Simulated assay, not measured.
Amino acid sequence: MAEETYLIVGLGNPGAKYESTRHNVGFRIVEAIARSEGGSLDLYKWDSHFCQMSLWGARIFFVEPQTFMNLSGKSISRFVEYFKISADHILVVHDDIDMHPGRVKLVSGGGPGGHNGIRSLIQCLGTRDFFRLKYGVGRPGRDGVHPDMPVERFVLASFNHDEEMLLAERMTSLADGVREFVTTGSQQAMNVLNVIK
């Protein structure tokens, strides 16, 4: 029987100036998971860095769109169409300003919640029925962040030391959850990921 195909997408902005920003945490998580399994996103196709791996009993594409956040769906839709990937096999990892720093949540469906990358994906894929792995980065006015800082400046600023440590602590659990998503399904993955507060 042929391996099932999964798409694990990290959202972010291309270029060195954005690498360590809160908005690029999706890139960082996907890169770290691929790297932990011996992969490297050094191939380029359809305006994305990606790697293809035979992993966890499936064919998995780890993908980072290089179109800038607002056009993420343009690139991802090409992978979905060409490889005929069903929506329930798509997992998109991204930052969420409405969850406190370090909180993790796996959800299916729903609206973009103000996230332009998710909005682009919904528009280009023509469906909301893909999975999102949200990583909390907090919001100005909460969690000790100055309330006068504009949201745009906040998400495009780098993690502070404590946030970096928190992300490092979460990485093994994040990888475990993504593996469960592929091997045993979304419900078991939620059991692993949604307890991370």
Results as ranks from 00 to 15, higher is better:
Pro140Arg: 01
Leu193Ala: 14
Ile97Arg: 01
Ile90Asp: 03
Ile196Cys: 09
Phe62His: 02
His23Ala: 01
Arg128Pro: 05
Leu166Val: 10
Gly117His: 04
Thr172Tyr: 10
Ile122Gly: 03
Gln66Ala: 08
Phe27Gly: 11
Ala157Leu: 00
Glu81Arg: 15
Asp148Glu: 11
Pro101Cys: 05
Leu166Arg: 15
Phe154Ser: 00
Gly111Asn: 05
Val145Ile: 06
Arg103Thr: 08
Gly102Met: 05
Ala189Val: 11
Leu167Arg: 08
Gly117Gln: 00
Leu167Glu: 10
Phe68Glu: 02
His115Gln: 10
Phe27His: 03
Met1His: 10
Val195Glu: 03
Ser120Asn: 02
Asn116Lys: 15
Gly73Lys: 08
Arg128Ala: 13
Phe27Ala: 07
Leu133Ser: 12
Gly26Arg: 04
Ser40His: 15
Met53Arg: 12
Tyr135Ala: 06
Arg119Ser: 11
Met99Asp: 04
Asp143Phe: 06
Phe50His: 08
Glu19Asp: 06
Leu133His: 03
Glu3Asp: 13
Asp176Ile: 09
Gln52Cys: 15
Leu7Asn: 10
Pro112Ala: 15
Lys74Trp: 00
Ser108Ile: 12
Ala58Met: 09
His89Leu: 06
Gly141Ser: 06
Thr172Leu: 07
Ile97Phe: 02
Glu152Val: 15
Leu133Thr: 01
Ile196Met: 10
Arg103Ala: 14
Val93Ser: 11
Gly10Arg: 07
Arg35Tyr: 00
Asp98Arg: 13
Ala87Thr: 12
Met99Cys: 08
Ile122Cys: 12
Met165Pro: 04
Gly39Ala: 00
Gln187Asp: 12
Ile60Val: 15
Val178His: 04
Arg170Ala: 10
Arg142Thr: 15
Leu133Cys: 11
Thr127Ser: 15
Ala34Pro: 00
Arg119Ala: 06
Gln187Glu: 10
Glu37Cys: 09
Asp162Tyr: 14
Val137Met: 04
Leu71Gln: 08
Val25Asp: 02
Gly26Asp: 00
His23Gly: 14
Asn70Met: 04
Glu64Gln: 14
Ile29Asn: 05
Arg78Met: 14
Gly57Phe: 06
Leu55Arg: 12
Asn191Gly: 13
Gly111His: 05
Gly102Cys: 06
Arg170Leu: 09
Lys197Asn: 14
Cys51Leu: 04
Gly144Ile: 02
Gly144His: 03
Gly102Pro: 01
Ala189Asn: 03
Thr127Met: 10
Val178Asn: 09
Tyr6Trp: 10
His49Pro: 07
Leu106Ile: 07
Thr184Gln: 14
Ile60Tyr: 05
Val178Thr: 09
Ser40Lys: 15
Pro112Tyr: 10
Thr183Phe: 08
Asn13Met: 08
His49Asp: 13
Arg132Met: 02
Val30Asn: 01
Val63Ala: 15
Val182Met: 05
Ser48Tyr: 01
Asn70Tyr: 08
Leu7Glu: 01
Lys84Tyr: 04
Asp88Tyr: 03
Asp143Glu: 11
Ile196Gln: 12
Arg132Cys: 03
Ser72Ile: 10
Met165Gln: 13
Ile85His: 00
Glu164Asn: 15
Glu3Thr: 13
Arg179Pro: 04
Asn24Arg: 07
Gly73Glu: 00
Leu106Asp: 04
Ala32Arg: 08
Val104Asp: 07
Glu163Val: 10
Met165Arg: 15
Thr184Tyr: 04
Phe68Ser: 10
Glu64Ile: 13
Ile33Met: 09
Leu91Lys: 13
